[in-house]
Write a protein that binds this DNA or RNA. Structure first.
Lengths: 223, 223, 223, 223
DNA sequence: CATGAATGAGAATTCATTCAT
DNA sequence: AATGAATGAATTCTCATTCAT
């Protein structure tokens, strides 16, 4: 009943799990817990997620939970570590974005991949959002993820703009802000449009607004 | 120690307070509680905010708290109601945004006011963000606030764009997403730039990207 | 909205009220509080009765309450004192109950008056029932009330029975038990019959069972 | 220090306990809690009974309590369910009560069993009495228990009486009222006689008064 | 490895009673 | 005489984490 198909988690697991050799069964149990955590996160959000919910979904016990994770936060850290990796990888694929059609397509494609990632890891990213208000670790990890993308973006944006008035760092964060939050609205059903349409519009806005792209009516199969 | 100067709260208070006639002292106490809640919200966020923290800051007792608010949520509802009013008022002031310099200035000014409002009510808005994940009332009130601004924006955006490809609703939400989240980054110190700079850049991005404005090097007193 | 018309309360009031001279207005306020207490007792029962409810019904304030009564219990004590007086008076009117028709009528009449009293003071008597489980004063006062009636009954019963096997004290308490609880069922709607029917049957049972009366088909105006 | 020897509880437990498989230890703990509740009920009554008292007597923790019962009421419901079962079973054993010596013995025996049951479950039954004033569930369950016995009694009473004046329903409730309340007086020490004497007298009163039995001096081993 | 059971430190809320006008 | 406001002890319930088998 999980809402989205899930890619394989490359996860290294929580603290206790790293001190031991995990055999096949152990790995399986850990996976079950991580998957369950995603499901619960999705359904309840970070703060409302209870260890009890997680072990119930994973069909295992409290005791077992602590065999693999030092505590609740440890589990979310593990989940977030995965996201961080993926996001970092994604950030690296961001090439220069020119003002022309090619630039548009490049940006559109990158945003598409970002979107996939968000949809996949949505619950974790939302959890991060929720958690970061507090001073805890999870929050800090989230900031690192943010930094990764922002850094890549700043580079691309700086290349595309020479205005002395336009602050690339702000523009980069504005970009992340926009796409992150929009997806958030999407997943939380506050915005209800097809993902493709969302991406088209966002790409246009950012291409034109941030990367100096030229606005043009785009031909669409007359629908 | 409250981080930001505070405007007068027009608040009507929580459920229990509405059933009684409040005398001068009562009103003062209610105000103290609302202010205290802002402070705590700012420091701890919604979920970590304890009634105990609030009454400590307000230098009053637990019992007193429940004389004015039915529970924690009730208090936040009262706070959010204020925000909702202010946001609605702000939304109404959004006129047409043309592609020229005047449009830029109009947008810049509006965003400036939005920014003031966000800075003022930041803690409440962040609390809303945290809360909306759950199914509770506070979350739903937040959505209404969102809707108010989005509706106003859609109108302005539609006037400024005739592209059949560009979805004004998405663009409107993208706009809110960007400015909301950027301020969030600002307040949570994940972004550290002067507010003026932030506003300049955001205005440019949105004016050009969303309202069809023309990009131009803007003359700035050589700083 | 009080369920039953109320006789005048002869009440002397609570401790604080007895230390002062009550003027007309003071007496009126005290009366309002006592009446309100009856109403609340009826609606909520002893344990669920809140001072707040009482002062709301009496349209006065918490502060005022404690001007007349030392505490909640004090008020119930005052109410119960009234009942005690009435019950004592009633107990005195119990004459000998013979086994014949006259005895039946005498008993029927006495039970009728008891019933009136119960209906009138029902809330207080039920409160006593609720309260007596605990060790508090109210409970003890209730016992005295019980003792008064039982003593009177023992006398009548002893006159009517010479069996060495039949314990008049038990029979007396059994009598009270039956009529008290039956009225309780009646007021709490667990029993739904006209009061007259209830009294007829109870009188028969007790007359025959306790007072040695002879059972006979009684002629009733063919209704 | 429990006042009465206790039969085995067949209890199914509260809501949370029913959702899980209880192992031996779990069952033991649940039993401890139920027993403790009886003890506390006896000592303090329903309203004054604190979860804290119960867990202290059961020598366990607050958390554990809520592992087995959703709340205090849930526990009492469980207890009351047991009583309900036993009472229903008892009600079924009530055969016809004739006016002769055999009828007397039959009634005496049934009342004896009722008495045993009451003494055993006294605390629970008293708790029910206390609780029923309020609108809660426990109260309603109590009414069902009452109905069970009353129904059985009505049948027996109707067989034994043909009077058109005598209402069997009232007589049935009067019967229950008498024996319930008398035992209540007994347990709350407002009445202090040997149980056997109490039963003898009550049997006589009811046999003669309700079941048309003939009064006779009963020969008792000259004591 | 796995599990059910137990724990106890919080957190929210209620309400009789006292206080200050 | 009256009142609104304030208090804080008492109580229930939750849930992350530890324990024993």
């Amino acid at each position: 009943m999980a809402a989205t198909p899930r890619r394989k988690l490359s996860t290294r697991g929580g603290a206790p799990a790293q001190e031991r050799e995990l055999r096949a069964q152990g790995k399986k149990t850990m996976r079950k817990l991580l998957d369950a955590a995603m499901t619960v996160l999705e359904k309840r959000g970070y703060h409302a997620a209870r260890v009890d919910d997680i072990v119930k979904v994973a069909r295992t016990s409290h005791g077992t939970f602590y065999l693999y994770f030092a505590n609740k936060e440890d589990l979310f850290r593990a989940l977030l570590a995965d996201v961080a990796d993926e996001v970092a990888a994604l950030a690296e694929t961001l090439g220069p974005i020119g003002p022309d059609e090619a630039g548009y397509r490049e940006l559109r494609s990158w945003l598409g991949r970002f979107s996939d990632l968000y949809v996949h890891y949505g619950p974790v990213i939302r959890a991060w959002t929720e958690a970061e208000v507090e001073g805890d670790d999870v929050g800090r990890m989230g900031e690192q993820v943010l930094t990764t993308v922002v850094t890549a973006l700043i580079e691309s944006i700086t290349e595309a703009n020479d205005s002395d008035d336009f602050d690339p760092q702000v523009a980069a964060m504005a970009t992340v802000a926009m796409i992150e939050r929009l997806h958030y609205y999407l997943l939380s059903r506050q915005l209800d449009v097809p993902r493709e349409d969302l991406l088209d519009t966002v790409t246009t806005v950012l291409h034109v607004g941030v990367f100096g792209g030229t606005r043009r009516k785009r031909r669409r199969s007359a629908s």
